[in-house]
Design a protein around this nucleic acid. Structure first.
Lengths: 341, 341
DNA sequence: ACACTATTTGTAAGCGCTTACATCAATAAT
DNA sequence: ATTATTGATGTAAGCGCTTACAAATAGTGT
């Protein structure tokens, strides 16, 4: 059938259909601008040759890729999975493709990934959190690539963002812990350096204590990467403290899951002997034993809204506005009043 | 400073450094072919202009992208995460970038993604499992894109693959279950249609029964997507059977985690009243209670080896050979002898 | 000094596509 | 009948890069 053994190009299709390359291109990109009969002929040629447009060539010629890039700190656990899935689904609906890469919580790596994604022709970028060098935004501006921050909402931030108040949410959870009667509270936080969300979560706890008229700065606090094993280690260290905390608030559900696992290993019963809380309400929160009391983040809603906003920015329909998503505490079994002193 | 407000091109750099575009290109791609003094000048121009090469243009001109594509059935859970991470790490070491997309276990979607990735200039593709239409391979061949199958090793398969024997591994696990004394065994399998791994896992169980001289075809079997909730539902249905199975073998750890959660909800104690097994040994297997007896798959090793092999294929150093990875059963607490009848 | 080779750099032809503009035919308006 | 208008299609100029080939320069051996 086909004359050559290698991949067909627009030119081959044009020849096969007896039209110009412009017409073929139009058939594929704005079919209404081509008369029915011609279109038939062209589409048939496309079909019979098994033609697929060369993406790089399209991007180069059109300076438009219908691709959105997202750089998340990690793919290792499920923290970002659900939100990103929703983000992607919404993008797809609008005809965009998502390219994801992870920075391993390293600002330099993130910078690198941003350049890579832009070089690959991303029309817009989704970034996590506000904390990063400002010259990156200059770079994006020069390349005319709009960017949107997610997973974090700060009223005073200049850049547009679709997220939630990490401090507010954690503050509310801390209030519950206080209301349950806990006074010896310890924190297992994610690494706060370069992570505004982790910072905000810790400060949310502090805020709750201050609001309650308690000293906030002497809470035992361990910072550690968001990994199950690290959460377990940190919990073990906290349990060795004297006096031992009656409640351990974790920076997210992954750390909390680690804490719970360690509690079990140590024979410390949760919540009878010590309470544990998480953050995010990812799947694992409902599976561990006891099920975690945590902050529910509507990840899907956030992902969807971020997609809509970013697309609007890319298409020049919006200069970039910020959206605040509401979170709420979900009460399960890992938080209970402390054993009487 | 810079004269224009928009992104600098090779040309701008060349002008700034007072050399030709060819020299700039060489400086960036094969520095040893350019004399030191010139290189200095060029690199400085690159630096001062903040130049980043345009990827689409590079791909077009070089017909090489140093990009590998991977299409996995799902990103929703961690099944593929670890292996893919190792795959990516190894790729990066060799100077390649990984592009991942997910097919949602839909063959049509997979086909679509393959075309997309090829159109984007992927130099090679990682595919999961052997089951797919053969015309896809023709397409890949025409575009001269080598592909490698992972997560599955079938001695008789034509295509190269880096994986493990799903049936063999599951067969071994089933032997343990039988050795523990179980005879009323039920299966919660993933959807087997279009999924050779799920099929092989079920047939591994059958094989073990046959080897033990037992009837294999009347085992209760529920097929359901790999989701926690689905595993829970399936487990509930199985527990309603009369006689009730004494062991439930799950197609993977995610289903098993769901089963465990449901067991707890139903007040059925594992492993005292019923044993549960998983497959994969992902992180969750050690976190659930009781910890899962499951098949350990060396995902990292598989990912690494797959990367090495695929790169060798892309670079024409290998026609594509198959590698079999060894798995082993890891004994934890979810499997025990049945309560006496 | 010469021819010859090796090294460095420049020239320019694409890679496969999109799109502004030109062309042409057909229809509507005068 | 003539001109303006609209719609379908063709022409060709890039998009930003790589690389074969040509040219120029420097180094070598005789």
């Amino acid at each position: 059938m086909g004359k050559t053994r290698s991949a067909p190009t627009l030119n081959d299709v044009a020849r096969e259909a007896g039209v110009s390359t412009a017409t073929v291109s139009r058939c594929l990109n704005s079919p209404e601008r081509v008369i029915e009969s011609t279109r038939q002929r062209v589409l048939q040629a496309v079909e019979s040759l098994g033609y697929t447009p060369n993406f790089a060539a399209q991007v180069m010629a059109a300076k438009r890729s219908f691709t959105i890039g997202a750089i998340i700190p990690t793919m290792d656990n499920a923290i970002f999975a659900r939100g990103l899935q929703a983000f992607q689904d919404q993008l797809r609906e609008a005809g965009y493709t998502l390219l994801v890469s992870s920075s391993a919580y390293d600002p330099e790596a993130e910078h690198e990934q941003i350049r890579t994604l832009v070089a690959r022709g991303a029309d817009g970028l989704l970034l996590i959190g506000h904390a990063r060098r400002t010259d990156i935004y200059d770079y994006l501006e020069r390349h005319q690539v709009p960017s949107l921050v997610a997973w974090s909402y700060e009223p005073e931030a200049v850049r547009p963002s679709v997220g939630f108040s990490n401090s507010g949410a954690m503050c509310e959870l801390a209030r519950r812990v206080l209301a349950a009667g806990h006074r010896r509270i310890a924190i297992i936080s994610g690494i706060t350096k370069g992570n505004d969300r982790a910072q905000a979560r810790v400060s949310g706890i502090h805020q709750a204590l201050l609001d309650a008229g308690l000293a906030a700065d002497e809470l035992p606090l361990i910072e550690t990467p968001y990994e199950i094993d690290k959460g377990a280690d940190a919990f073990a260290r906290l349990m060795a403290l004297d006096p031992r905390p009656t409640a351990v608030m974790c920076g997210n559900d992954v750390l909390a899951a680690g804490a719970l696992r360690e509690a079990q290993r140590l024979g410390i019963s949760v919540p009878e002997q010590v309470s544990v809380t998480g953050f995010d309400d990812i799947e694992i929160a409902g599976i561990v034993h006891p099920a975690l009391t945590t902050v529910h983040v509507p990840h899907r809603e956030m992902g969807r809204k971020a997609a809509c906003e970013l697309i609007a920015m890319v298409e020049g329909r919006s200069p970039g506005k910020s959206v605040c998503i509401n979170t709420h505490v979900v009460t399960r079994h890992s938080l209970a009043p402390p054993a009487e002193a």
